[in-house]
């Protein structure tokens, strides 16, 4: 019988430093995954944490991890050729096939961009399959900016608004992502989807703001971040009401998400 708790060893190919606190680990992996599914990564000396795929390529996956507290620290000692233990993929992904042929709005805050990056790249690589892509993303300050190369790349093909919470900088507006949602021409869209990832408060406010600007509830998708010890519906940590985020999510349509309460 398959042991769902047993991780597999995977080779680290590369470690990319994104910011002072965030690193991207490129790990050898060659089985199918859906866009922003997550894996339970074993963090040396500590235990496991759920991390979404932030990038995919032939023969590898990328995970962007933030150095926060004692939990994720242990992983930053690892380098190329070391092994990383992980199991997955778990959870659902944004319904990307459904996003095709329509206008797409992506709103993210901080590391929230990581899980959306594979999707953004999909539309970047195949510009013909979306009518338009609007990307609003925010970071705390210039030091917290993630994926700068890709931000520059996306700016060429997408309608982008990049912002920093409390400062202005070249290429960045000042303010929260929620302030810029009014720039999105919801009224001009025949059909569209909105994907939001970020801290819970930000997601709530961003969804509200979209609604205030004429978006429909069922066009909005959010992705939840929860503490997870198992990823397979056993440990109970991710449960909200009768819903297990690891099994039924992490992506939820807003019509469902708005009724979940912690």
């Amino acid at each position: 019988m398959e042991n769902i708790m047993l991780p597999q060893a995977h080779k680290i190919l590369k470690v990319l430093r994104e910011t002072q606190a965030e690193y991207t680990f490129r790990v050898a992996y060659d089985r199918p995954t859906a866009y922003n599914q997550f894996f339970q990564l074993s963090i040396p000396k500590i235990g496991e944490a759920p991390i979404s795929i932030s990038g995919r390529g032939v023969g590898y996956l990328e995970f962007t991890i933030r150095k926060t507290g004692r939990l994720t620290n242990g992983i930053f000692g690892l380098g190329p050729n070391d092994t990383l233990f992980m199991r997955g993929p778990y959870g659902n992904s944004f319904p990307v096939a459904d996003f095709e042929g329509k206008d797409l709005v992506v709103i993210c805050g901080g590391t929230g961009m990581a899980p959306l990056k594979t999707i953004l790249n999909h539309f970047y690589d195949h510009p013909a399959i979306a009518r338009s892509v609007h990307l609003i993303t925010g970071f705390k300050d210039v030091n917290a900016v993630l994926f700068s190369d890709e931000l520059a790349k996306f700016a060429q093909k997408f309608h982008t608004i990049y912002c920093l919470d409390n400062m202005e900088a070249p290429g960045f507006h000042q303010g929260f992502v929620t302030q810029y949602i009014k720039e999105i021409p919801f009224a001009d869209f025949a059909d569209y989807n909105v994907a939001i990832v970020g801290p819970p408060v930000m997601m709530g406010l961003a969804a509200q703001e979209c609604l205030a600007n004429g978006a429909q509830e069922d066009k909005i998708w959010v992705s939840f971040e929860r503490r997870m010890s198992c990823g397979v519906g056993k440990c109970g940590h991710c449960k909200i009401n009768g819903t297990y985020v690891c099994l039924d999510g992490p992506v939820f349509n807003y019509t469902k998400a708005k009724n979940l309460f912690d």
């Binding site: 019988m1 042991n3 769902i4 397979v232 056993k234 297990y244 690891c246 099994l247």
Partner: peptide, 12 residues
């Protein structure tokens, strides 16, 4: 919980 939830079984 251990044998049905999520459609998988916890061997432990």
């Amino acid at each position: 919980i251990f044998l049905k939830n999520g459609g998988n079984e916890d061997i432990y």
